[in-house]
Amino acid sequence: MNHFININFYWLAQSAGDAAQETAEQTKQIVSKITTGKVALAVLILIATYLILKLLDWLVIWLSERIARAWRLQVKQFLPFLRLLLFTFVTVFLMNLFLNLSKENVLAVTGTVAVALGFAFKDFASSIIAGIVGLFESPYRVGDRIKIGDYYGEVISYGIRAIKIQTPDDNTVTIPHNKIWTEAISSANAGALEAQVVTKFYFAHEIEIKLVKKILYRVAQTSKYTHLKLPIVVVMEEKSWGSLFKLKAYPLDARDEFIYKTDLITRAKEAFAKQQLAYPHLLDVEELQIK
């Protein structure tokens, strides 16, 4: 019995050794076929790809900013798909150029590449895979106003590895796609042109609630930025230091979020001043902050 097992082990070890030798031989053959001409062609293709990518980016953004506002996001969201298409095409072409994509070659190379990627480019590969998954799952799209971690802003670019968001302070933040595996992503408009804007107003307890609500509704209804076909809501909460009112409304364009908020606050405060509505006492707020 033991003798039989020993023979089996010997036979398996010999088979594995043969397979490894065969793979090494195939890889050697593939590498030996890489010529200077092929390398030069690959470099040219990479340069052309880079230029086409830049052109695509420029063209899609240019077009999206010139067409009707309602179509802006749809056009921008087309960009990641175009980029993916181009990357796929170029990758397949280059692989075919160097590796002569037969079944055996693919098997031989993918094993080697998988090991290399697994150790050296783990995060990079994870981001690329997350980027591809993200294209179909759509946790964010170009034009969306999203919050990832501490960063909030408009997605201005969807790359193969990362997205770029523009913050309200006009900073551009690059965030790798692999954040979608671990981080919660909050999208204010999820592909739509409109995003709700919540503006907070603080008052002392003794104010006349109906008057404040009427002013807040009117402020939203008479703002040039308000999308009137979407709901305007005023909600309030009682706090120990006073009354908190939240005016929830939608601007015509999510991009106007901050200027819209400013407009609402400016005009509301003018009206509050006319009505002499009392704000919470500063001392109380400071006490609250200390607590």
């Binding site: 009707a68 506002r69 309602a70 042109l193 409109e194 999308h227 009137l228 076909k229 015509l252 364009d253």
Partner: peptide, 12 residues
């Protein structure tokens, strides 16, 4: 033309 342009840009 103005009416068309504004309607395309979300104005009521």
């Amino acid at each position: 033309n103005i009416k068309q342009e504004l309607a395309r840009n979300n104005f009521v």
